[in-house]
């Protein structure tokens, strides 16, 4: 009996010691194979002549990188990616906060409204892109027709750079504004209500309350939303790919993004070496913007901390007096 008991307790000790590692291992194994390894190996591919069909060729060092940054198409893609990112993130955050503010009140059928603003989220980006590219057809699309009836000249949605970026950004905004509004709504509900009461006592109107109480309290959430948009936004592919029937981003690369450029190099021109070089450069860009974001966040968060404590102190003082 005794040895078996011993064995059992030893098994149990092993169980307790190693089971946690077993439980978390699926994530780490999978991440290593489909996340980390491909990323690191991208650098290896980027340093070679590498054809989609013929496979690995000669080691070429940094030649692929040099070739890519020497291309006009690369810089245009970079410009487009940043521009579409800014156009889709900026207005989206503003609209989402305003919508959240409207939702954060005594609404009848509250759940209905929340679900209502979230609806576009379940529409696949490909469908969104198809519908919107119909809206923005240059000659005979809905948008230009409406503009025409109110006496505005047709806009070159598919020929001019900025309009095409606006159209693509509108697809992103369509899908994500309501979603982010709910994030802001959650953050707004976490704002201590007495802050508003205090502001009201101080004679602040609703708009004033919104600007001086709500928005500052939301700052960390805003930064969060911007950071998460950065990672996805800089890799935008679906919407510009489906903006016209060719999928190459326009005759002059008006809306060709980095990821489309990567795809075109890798899968249309079969040059995995060049495509990998673009991937590495885009990775560095995302990291750089991430670091900038992080620094700003830290600074603002610190400032924010001080500010809110002063506010609270003021509140307490007010309560006492």
């Amino acid at each position: 009996m005794a040895p078996r008991k011993h064995l059992r307790s030893r098994a149990s000790a092993w169980d307790r010691k190693y089971s946690p590692y077993l439980y978390i291992s699926p994530f780490f194994i999978l991440f290593a194979i489909v996340g980390l390894f491909p990323l690191v190996y991208t650098i290896w591919v980027a340093a070679h002549d590498w054809d989609l069909i013929m496979g690995q060729g000669e080691f070429v060092g940094l030649d692929n990188f040099a070739h890519v940054v020497g291309q006009r198409a690369f810089w245009i893609a970079l410009r487009n990616t940043l521009s579409i990112f800014i156009l889709s993130t900026g207005p989206q955050v503003v609209a989402a906060i305003i919508i959240a503010y409207m939702l954060d009140s005594h609404l009848r059928a509250r759940t209905f409204w929340r679900m209502g603003v979230l609806l576009p989220y379940v529409v696949t980006p490909v469908a969104v892109a198809l519908i919107f590219s119909n809206f923005f057809s240059q000659r005979f699309g809905l948008v230009n027709s409406v503009l025409d009836t109110i006496g505005i000249d047709a806009i070159g949605w598919q020929s001019d750079v900025l309009p095409s970026h606006l159209a693509i950004a509108s697809m992103v905004n369509f899908r994500w504004t309501g979603y982010n509004a709910l994030i802001f709504l959650a953050a707004m509900q976490a704002v201590p209500r007495d802050l508003y009461e205090q502001a009201e006592i101080d004679g602040a109107g609703k708009v004033r309350q919104f600007i001086s109480v709500t928005v500052p309290m939301l700052r960390p959430t805003i930064i969060f939303v911007v950071i998460t948009s950065t990672i996805g936004g800089l890799q935008i592919f679906d919407e510009p790919r489906l903006y016209d029937q060719y999928g190459r981003g326009g005759t002059d690369g008006q809306w060709q993004t980095m990821t489309i450029y990567l795809y075109e190099l890798g899968w249309t021109r079969s040059d995995f070496g060049l495509a990998s070089a673009v991937a590495v450069l885009l990775f560095l860009l995302i990291v750089a913007i991430g670091i900038i974001n992080f620094t700003i966040t830290r600074r603002i968060a610190n400032g924010e901390g001080r500010k809110s404590t002063t506010q609270q102190r003021r509140l307490k003082k007010g309560a006492r007096s």
């Binding site: 070739h67 291309q71 006009r72 198409a73 020929s159 001019d160 326009g250 005759t251 002059d252």
Partner: peptide
Amino acid sequence: NRVDVDGIDDADESWDKFVNDVEAM
């Protein structure tokens, strides 16, 4: 199409871009 459809370049500018594209190949 840059010249005829989009109207963003004249024939010579657009040709230069084409030459550029071909160089890249």
